[in-house]
Each structure stands twice: as structure tokens, then as C-alpha cells.
Design a protein around this nucleic acid. Structure first.
Length: 293
DNA sequence: TACCAGGTAAAAA
DNA sequence: TTTTTACATGGT
């Protein structure tokens, strides 16, 4: 059994971060004491478990039953929990806003949890286009159960190779539209052929990422921002035209009614360079608030 | 039943 | 160039 320690930047609350993630996919209650996820490391399925050494401690315990390199485990876990992000500058900015400040204090140490790979994130973005998160979740699980791999009771998201080979009909059978089936096929093939290197996006600026993502068929402005904030954890990225964002920013930072994308952009200016994190906190607040709706 | 939900590309105007 | 339409599922 491989075990390693991971030090994260700034304040971190793993239990809260897990709770936040669960709030976006309502279902049976999930374990919030540890992050358990199956990933592929150097091509091999590995069960990864991440725990917080002590409450809100900066040290995380990363372990796996499999004999993966501790360094690779640490790297993968650090990616998923956004270990490099320091929330303190965000909290300082939040202090200037009467609405965000109490929310930031309530959720002290909360970070987004990233999907294990950018390919998974890209496919998720396509699945979630236009339909409700509930519907998207159902479709997503059909895709995983049809094309993914199961290890230690957990599913690993299908590889680009598998989804590149999948027929439009098979994908449609999961509940995707024919269009979305083509998009997913397309991005998977780009990755397999090597014309798209998703991991390379990690080294590029937000604008360079926007340019590359929106050049892929099926990926527009919304998907580029969505992948930036959720997949890459870029703290300033916001899909301002996103329906939920327009609704929530309007509700909490505006007059209560849904905003236009332009109004969202204007309203979020004070939170640069943490606009995406500010919106993340608002969305979670809305989902966890007892007086929701 | 109709409409909305964390959009996008392609057709039509 | 700008506006409209088709698309799939799930909840209300």
C-alpha cells in the first residue's frame, strides 16, 4: 500500500469541499470524510483515497492499495483537490463585499474539486450543455457504465480511445442527442490523433485556452469558460452566459431577477482575479442554504 | 401538456 | 450579419 502526504496551499477544508461537490449532484448521501476515486495512473487503474490529517489541516494523506508511485499519487490527488490554489487573496477581496464576505466566511477553506482528467471534463461539458444537471447526470452515468471501467467498486471515466471508437448510435442510446454524440466522438478523436493535447492547456494562459477550446466543434464560449473554471481551476473564469450563473448572480448580487451576461460581467468586476471562485461560493451557498429558492 | 434546464451549430432571414 | 431552429432527458 502506497501512502504519501500532500501539503496544500492556504486554508483547506476537505469535508466542506466534498459536501459542495455533492450538492451539485443530488443523490444518495456521500461520504464527506474522505475522497475516494478511481483513476488511471500510467495506464493502470488505481484507487485513490484522500483524507485530511486533522480538521482543516494543510496536510492531506494520500493512499492507494495499488503499487503506484507515491509521487504520481500525490500529483494526481493535488490536481483533483486544487492543492496549488491559495484562497487567502480571495478572502481579502471578499471582505469588501457585504454579500460575498459572509458567504466566504461560512465556507472558509472550500475549494472546487476537479475531475481527474481534462478529457472527462470536456465530455462532461458537452453532456451538460442546455439540459438540466439532473438529466445530464443520468446521461453521464449511462456513458460511464456503458464505456467505462470498474475497479474496486468505482467507475473510471472512459478513455479517449474508447469514446473515439464508440458509434453515434451507441452514444445516442445513452440519451445524448446525435449532435452531442458527434461532438464527443470528435473531441475523443482529436485527442487520440494527437491534434488536441488537453494536458498542454495546463501550461497556457486563460485566453490561449479559450481560443483552443472554442476551436473544437461543439465547444463554444460557455464550454470554454466552464472547462477553465471547473476543469482547470482557473479562479477568474466565469461562464457569464450560463443560465445558473445569470440567475444566481442576479439573485444575490443584483435586484433578484436573472441578469444578462453583460450584467454578470459588470457585477463581478470587483472580484477580479477570483470571479470564478466568487461565483462558485454563491452557487454552493444557494444549494446548501436552508432557505433555498 | 407545455415549458424550462449550468448551449451549439447550422439554417433562414 | 443577425435571428431562429433542432436537439434529448428529467422535473414541475
Amino acid at each position: 500500500m502506497a501512502t504519501t502526504q500532500l501539503t496544500v496551499q492556504g486554508p483547506y477544508d476537505l469535508a466542506l469541499s466534498l459536501k459542495a461537490r455533492a450538492s451539485f449532484s443530488p443523490g444518495p448521501a456521500e461520504d464527506t470524510t474522505a475522497l475516494r476515486i478511481a483513476v488511471r495512473i500510467d495506464g493502470k487503474p488505481v484507487l485513490l483515497e484522500v483524507q485530511q490529517a486533522a480538521n482543516k489541516s494543510a496536510v492531506l494523506q494520500v493512499s492507494s492499495l495499488d503499487d503506484a508511485h507515491p509521487e504520481r499519487l500525490q500529483e494526481q490527488a493535488g490536481w483533483i483537490v486544487l492543492a496549488d490554489l491559495d484562497l487567502r487573496p480571495f478572502y481579502r477581496i471578499a471582505e469588501n463585499d457585504p454579500i460575498i464576505d459572509p458567504v466566504a466566511r461560512l465556507f472558509h477553506g472550500m475549494k472546487p474539486i476537479r475531475p481527474a482528467t481534462l478529457f472527462e471534463m470536456a465530455v462532461d461539458a458537452v453532456i451538460e450543455q442546455q439540459i438540466s444537471l439532473t438529466a445530464a447526470r443520468r446521461i453521464r452515468s449511462r456513458v460511464i457504465e456503458r464505456f467505462g471501467e470498474r475497479t474496486a467498486g468505482l467507475w473510471i471515466f472512459p478513455d479517449p480511445e474508447t469514446l473515439a471508437r464508440a458509434s453515434t448510435e451507441e452514444l445516442r442510446a445513452c440519451g445524448l442527442s446525435g449532435r452531442k454524440a458527434e461532438y464527443i466522438n470528435g473531441v475523443a478523436r482529436n485527442v487520440v490523433e494527437g491534434s488536441l493535447d488537453l494536458d498542454q492547456l495546463k501550461n497556457l494562459s486563460d485566453n490561449e485556452v479559450r481560443s483552443i477550446i472554442s476551436g473544437i466543434r461543439g465547444f463554444g464560449r460557455w464550454s470554454a469558460e466552464y472547462i477553465l473554471i471547473r476543469g482547470l481551476g482557473r479562479p477568474d473564469a466565469v461562464p457569464a452566459d450560463d443560465l445558473a450563473v445569470r440567475t444566481m448572480v442576479g439573485k444575490y448580487l443584483g435586484d433578484g431577477s436573472r441578469m444578462t451576461a453583460e450584467q454578470v460581467e459588470q457585477t463581478l468586476k470587483p472580484f477580479v482575479p477570483f470571479r470564478g471562485i466568487a461565483v462558485f461560493y454563491l452557487l454552493v451557498y444557494h444549494r446548501l442554504a436552508p432557505d433555498r429558492k
